[in-house]
């Protein structure tokens, strides 16, 4: 009795990440409207706050997971030859991992500065 396979899990992940993304983007928007950082140092100081940094990390993790599920859905729908699908999916996976590492580096650098 395994319901944890690719169908339900992917679908749930997409919904859950979407909810986090919308909430965090609302917070981001109000922050940029009401307290727009006016200098690089202000940006850095904002990101260096532990809660903001954690929130941002979660936001990007959600974004990348969401993109992964969505992109995989598009490929399952439209790209049927297995070899091409696997190749594109692998490339996209590496690109997402690259993005993830880059985001982590940026937030880490802001935190230690």
């Amino acid at each position: 009795m395994s319901r944890r396979a690719s169908g339900l899990r992917a679908w749930f992940l997409q919904r859950a990440t979407a909810i986090y993304l919308i909430l965090f983007l609302l917070y981001l928007l109000q922050h940029l409207i009401f307290n727009p950082p006016d200098s690089f140092a202000a940006w850095q100081g904002w990101v260096a706050q532990p809660l903001v940094g954690l929130g941002l990390l979660l936001c990007f993790a959600s974004l990348l997971l969401h993109a992964w599920v969505g992109f995989r859905d598009v490929l399952i729908d439209y790209v049927h030859p297995t070899a091409i699908r696997v190749s594109i999916l692998t490339l996209f996976g590496f690109a997402l991992i690259g993005c993830a590492l880059w985001v982590m580096q940026t937030i880490f650098l802001a935190t230690v500065a």
Binding site: S6, G7, I76
Partner: peptide
């Protein structure tokens, strides 16, 4: 429910 699992049958 088990028969509907997987990425295709239901989740397309």
């Amino acid at each position: 429910l088990d028969k509907l699992e997987g990425p295709y049958k239901l989740f397309r």
